[in-house]
């Protein structure tokens, strides 16, 4: 009931006062409980050109399904990746971000009809820099639109629903096979606990193959992979930082980096705007080009 009162207050006080981080957290928690079917358009302006796509989403009873050749099914503290009815990877998730020192403040909860529905517009600022605009459905709490900005004020990615049906969808049961579920690891890792404003939330290990950590600053986020070998990107561009070259590839809503290190390979996948790339990468092991003998040795003996 308290959540409803807060939301009603936010939508009716126009122009609204600053919303607190706690209120935003409640809004977001509500959005995760919403039930709906939607088509979402993603369009991003990247240094390598426009990247856009259409995604189908279904959410019911806290479980989200995103369709593609590989289907993402998540909720209830875990996820599963499903291809042709079979789970190819799954994991459980426990951690949440600390709100001790939030990076973003939320302003201007104001009425903003969207798709002929009553909705509220919220703006997120890091300091004085606008970083995001959220449009939240008044009836369900679903996030109808998320626009993220570069530090220069230009739009980086625009994600918006173009169709929205608040009828709770009937999701088929996910065929989870518990034996394949990755559990968050508590081992000591060389992956840093924080990178700039980003905090490491959880970390997973898959045998000797890779270590995977998830970072968030409360709005943007990325996954960092430490692998035995370098992950090859398809037709990558490049980002050069102080003479170090990183392979970089943009896809709708995401950016992927891959580079070789002294110990193998690293890759980063996230939704970071381009102006944040350097700050994060500079806190990680630099690209390393092994000599011919080192390459032979590594190929033969790992």
């Amino acid at each position: 009931m308290r959540k409803v009162i807060i939301l009603v207050a936010v939508f009716t006080l126009l122009p609204a006062t600053t919303a607190s981080a706690a209120e935003l957290q409640e809004i977001l928690e509500r959005s995760q409980e919403a039930s709906y079917s939607a088509e979402q358009v993603i369009s991003c302006s990247t240094p390598d050109g426009v990247r856009d796509a259409v995604v189908s989403l279904e959410q019911a009873a806290g479980e989200l399904r995103v369709s593609g050749e590989v289907e993402v099914s998540s909720g209830s503290g875990g996820w599963a990746l499903v291809r042709e009815g079979s789970v190819i990877n799954s994991a459980s998730v426990e951690a949440g971000i600390s709100d001790a020192d939030p990076t973003y403040r939320v302003d201007n909860g104001s009425a903003h009809p969207f798709l002929n529905r009553k909705a509220g517009l919220y703006r997120l600022y890091a300091g004085d820099v606008l970083r995001g605009e959220l449009i939240v459905d008044g009836a369900t709490g679903a996030l109808l639109s998320v626009v993220t900005y570069n530090s220069d004020g230009n739009v980086y990615c625009d994600r918006r629903f173009i169709e929205f049906d608040p009828t709770p969808p009937e999701l088929s049961a996910a065929t989870l096979t518990t034996g394949e579920t990755l559990e968050p690891s508590d081992v000591t890792s060389s992956l840093p606990e924080s990178l700039g404003d980003f905090e490491r939330l959880d970390i997973y290990e898959d045998g000797d193959e890779f270590t995977f950590a998830y970072y968030s600053d409360g709005f943007f986020s990325f996954a960092l992979f430490q692998t035995r070998t370098v992950v090859e990107l398809t037709d990558p561009g490049a980002l050069t930082l102080e003479g170090s070259v990183y392979a970089r590839s943009f896809s709708p809503g995401q950016v992927t980096f891959s580079w070789e290190t002294r110990d193998g390979g690293m890759a980063l996948v996230g939704d970071l705007p381009p102006d944040m790339h350097a700050e994060v990468l500079e806190g990680l092991p630099q690209p390393f080009a092994p000599g011919i003998l080192q390459r032979i040795w590594r190929s033969l003996f790992g």
Partner: peptide, 18 residues
């Protein structure tokens, strides 16, 4: 893996999953 993990992020995950 990133898409799956971000979908569970309390910070806007459902809107940003890919």
């Amino acid at each position: 893996r990133f898409g799956a993990r971000v979908s569970l992020d309390p910070a806007f995950g459902p809107a940003k999953v890919m």
